[in-house]
Amino acid sequence: MEAIILQVLNGLDKGSAYALIALGLTLIFGTLGVVNFAHGALFMIGAFCAVTLSRILSLSHEVLDPGKTDFLGNPSKVNVPYVNDWFGEVAGSAIIDWAVPLSILFAIPVMIVIGIVMERGLIKHFYKRPHADQILVTFGLAIVLQEIIKYFYGANPIPTPAPQAFTGSFDFGAMLGFDPNVIIYPYWRIIYFAFAALIIGGVFAFLQFTTFGMVVRAGMADRETVQLLGIDIDRRFTLMFGLAAAVAGLAGVMYTPINSPNYHMGMDFLVLSFVVVVVGGMGSLPGAVAAGFLLGILESFASMREVLEYLPGINQIIIYLVAIIILLTRPRGLMGRKGVMEE
C-alpha cells in the first residue's frame, strides 16, 4: 500500500508536466488545427524565464563593507544585490529566494507575447498547408529557439533552486497514518502538482464559464458557423495560442527546481508530450490531462524494483508501449473526438 502511494506520488510531478504541455498542445491543435512541434521549446523558454528573472534579481554592485576587513585591515568589498538597496536586507534576500515563484508573474506576459508573435508571424501562414509542413516548420522553429537559448545561456544546466521554505521533503505517510519514514516526499513536487491542478482547473473554468471561452469552444466545434455569426474567431484563436504558450511556459517555470533547465529540455519533453496527446486523443482537453497523469504514474510504477525484476527495462519503454497499444486498439486515443485528424 505504502509503495503504491509512493509511486503514485512520484508519478504526479512528471505527470503534471506532461499534462500541462499536452494541454497546451491540444489547445493549439483544437483551436487552430496546427501540430506545434515548437511547444517543447515554449516549455523550455518558460524555464529560462525563471533563470533570467533570478539573474536579474541577483544583479548586484560592489560596496565597501566597513564591518568586515580583510587581513590587511582594509574594508573588504561585498556584493550587494540592488533589491537589497531598494527593499532592505530582509525583504531583498526574500525576493531573491523567491525568484522562481515570482517568475510566474514575469513569465505570463512574456509567454503570451511570444505565443502571439509566433502565431501571427509564422503559424498563421501554415493553416492551409498540409500537417506535414506544419510539423516541419515548427520543428525548424524549435531548433532555432533552442539554439538561441543555447547561445545566450550556454549548454550546461543552470541550477535554479526553489525558495528555502520549500526545499527538503516531508513525511507524507505519517500524515495519512502510515508508518513514518516510508513515504517521504519533497515539498516542491507537491507544490508543482497543486500548481498544475490549479492551472488546468483555471483553463477549464475559463473555457467553460466565460463568454470568451464559450466562443472559443464554439469555434473549435464549428469554425465557419461562428464566423458567419460575425465573430472574429481568428483573433480569439490567436489569444488562445498565447494562452497555450503561457501554460507551457508556466509548466517550465515551476519545473526548474525539479530539473535544472538546459537548452534541450523542451525537446526531451516534447516527444513524450506528443505521445501523451495522441494517447489522450487529438483535440480532447480532458483526454490530454488524463493521459498525462496516467502515463506519468505508469512510468513511476514501471521503475519500481519489483517490476523491474520481472520486466527489465520496462521503465524506459512503458510510455511508448502504452501508446502503441492504445493507438492500435483505440484509434482515436482515450477520449478522442470523432473526425479529428482522420484522413
Binding site: 510539423i135 516527444v271 506528443f274 495522441v278 527495462g313 519503454i317 501508446a323 502503441i324 493507438l327 485528424m341
Partner: peptide
C-alpha cells in the same frame, strides 16, 4: 494509421528501440 499518428507511432518504436 496515417498522418500524425503514423509519425508518433514510428517515433515511439524508434525511441523504444533506442532505450532498450
Amino acid at each position: 494509421r496515417s498522418g500524425i499518428y503514423f509519425s508518433i507511432l514510428t517515433l515511439a518504436f524508434a525511441q523504444m528501440m533506442y532505450s532498450l
